[in-house]
């Protein structure tokens, strides 16, 4: 149903300890947020893409996923690049609009390029995590990190029910559209309203049934499940440390060496 979720359960890195994958993704993500070096950011993006390919996810799928945040990326990065001011000083390119001057300043352009690369780096880290680590494992790691048990339990419940409800919503949608429910805008709105209302009622009924079933099996406020055991691999931890130290060094080198971006932001 969700492509990302499907790959999370069927990739080649499934047997790797989820804690290692989470640590790799999160640490690299933080480096991406702090780093001012285009080289380090792009290196992070390439490394993460490489790791995803190593996990056996087709390149085509990965590239397609990269287009998901593209609309936000284009709009938001564009918005930073373009600025409005009273006069057109310091603009590389601009349009005179009478009282305003809209254009692209060189300083803004540098910032927007940095943002673009930073987002690329951070998104690749997110994709590495979500494509290689099943949600159930992420939740079990969060449990070990002492996230409040109620939050963890709600996460687990919501994750499982998403699939049930999506399936229900899809079958309602199919039967509605086969009866011309989405023929025009007016029927479309009323059909969607009915769909959402029915989905809610069914979700509510299902939660009652679930509670009855669980209670009859001795539920006392806690759902315990067996967790898969993973072996911690020293080799992987060393590799993760090496890569992240390398990325930090790359960022530091550009900061002190005074690359274009480094000079402006220090």
């Amino acid at each position: 149903m969700f492509q990302i979720d499907q790959y999370a359960y069927s990739n080649r890195l499934l047997t790797v300890h989820p804690g290692e994958k989470l640590a790799f993704a999160v640490i690299t993500m933080i480096i991406c947020l702090i780093s001012q070096s285009l080289a380090a950011l792009l290196a992070a993006a390439v490394l993460m893409a490489g790791a995803v390919i190593l996990a056996g996810i087709p390149l085509r799928v990965y590239l397609k996923l990269m287009t998901v945040p593209a609309s936000f990326l284009v709009i938001a990065v564009g918005a930073v690049a373009v600025s409005i001011s009273g006069n057109g000083e310091g603009y590389l390119w601009g349009v005179d609009l009478g009282r305003f001057y809209i254009g692209i300043g060189s300083c803004n352009l540098d910032l927007s390029i940095l943002l673009l690369c930073r987002s690329l780096g951070a998104i690749s880290c997110l994709y590495f995590l979500s494509l290689t680590t099943p949600m159930v494992e992420v939740i079990s790691i969060l449990r070990k990190l002492r996230v409040p048990p109620l939050f963890i339990e709600l996460m687990g419940l919501i994750y499982r029910f998403i699939f049930v409800l999506v399936e229900t919503a899809e079958s309602i949608y199919t039967s509605q559209s086969s009866r011309l429910g989405y023929r025009n805008l007016k029927t479309g709105y009323s059909s969607l309203g009915i769909l959402a209302a029915n989905l809610l009622v069914r979700a509510y009924r299902r939660s009652e049934i679930l509670f009855t079933t669980l209670s009859s099996r001795g539920y006392t406020g806690e759902i315990r499940v067996l967790e898969t055991q993973f072996a911690v691999s020293g080799k992987n931890i060393l590799a993760i440390m090496a890569i992240d130290v390398l990325l930090i060094l790359l960022s530091l080198a550009e900061m002190s060496g005074g690359g274009l971006i480094g000079r402006i932001y220090n």
Binding site: L154, I158, R160, F161, V166, L199, L210
Partner: peptide, 12 residues
């Protein structure tokens, strides 16, 4: 349980 389904409902 109700909250679990409510959250899933919000997601869908």
């Amino acid at each position: 349980m109700l909250l679990g389904l409510a959250g899933a409902f919000a997601f869908v």
